[in-house]
Write a protein that binds this DNA or RNA. Structure first.
Lengths: 145, 145
DNA sequence: TTCCATGCAAAAACTTTGCACATCG
DNA sequence: CGATGTGCAAAGTTTTTGCATGGAA
């Protein structure tokens, strides 16, 4: 089974004329290890082993890594964007009420995706935005909302 | 043809023990007139006729009106939430690249909605989050992105 | 008259920017 | 060595909170 090819950082950076630095490696590692996280969470994670790394660097590095295609971000409606490795680009649902997040098979959006492509030429980015609504528990509590 | 029943503000407020104030009426009016807008945009609109209204009040009022079910908000990924009248709850697509927004028939999400309901008991809020991707023009420019 | 609502000011949360020093290559 | 990257500090945005005054009922 082929590795999800998380292209290695050093090569990717150099290929675009950027330098490999410990900070950049740490940010990418943190993103991979956390699965996903806000810039703040990623910074906190890094601080556990390297307190000196500045949050500014985290922001700048995430932007760079995204530009290089190594990471991406998605939105859960409210709040900060969640950064994740490119090979962890998954569709989610998020509950308005309690914030519960669940993974959804991306293919479930195939019908809209196809329609958008055919009718509009619009290329849907399946995992960029979570689908919002009420989870089973919260829907039970607020039958009319 | 039945009016889209934008329940009248005075009754709705009083029914929940709130007071009718000029500001509250103005915020609701602005939302309806604009179709949709960020708190900032709604505040600006109101300032055209009533410069004295504070942005804080706009935020507080939008929250209240949303709680009362008169307005709702949706996200286009980045940036501020867009508030709109409850009867203007539409599904949108938004382009990552140029920000272009388009309306999509909500039924296009029926398949996911059904799947979520049956498998997860999750009640999808169709219009809460716009579907992100690349519009035809931008997709043409960035064939690999 | 009695609370509720508003304006104002300040704080909070999140991100970006400028600049001098540090460091990768 | 030279250009890029980082840390630090400060400023920019957007939204929230506390409190005294103002106004709806």
């Amino acid at each position: 089974m082929p590795t999800p090819t998380p292209r290695r950082l050093p090569e990717t950076l150099r290929a675009s004329g950027y330098r490999l630095t410990p900070q950049r490696q740490m940010v990418l590692d943190a993103v991979v290890q956390l699965g996903q996280g806000t810039p703040e969470e990623i910074g906190t994670r890094i601080h556990q082993s390297s307190p000196g790394v500045n949050i500014t660097t985290v922001y700048r590095t995430l932007e760079l890594l995204e530009q290089l295609g190594l990471v991406r971000h998605r939105h859960f409606g409210h709040g900060a964007p969640m950064y994740h490795a490119s090979d962890n680009d998954t569709l989610h649902s998020v509950c308005h009420q309690c914030g519960q997040v669940a993974v959804i098979p991306g293919e479930k959006l195939q019908p809209v995706a196809r329609w958008l492509a055919e009718e509009r030429g619009f290329v849907l980015d399946t995992g960029h935005i979570a689908l919002a609504g009420l989870c089973a528990r919260c829907a039970g509590e607020h039958p009319s909302e």
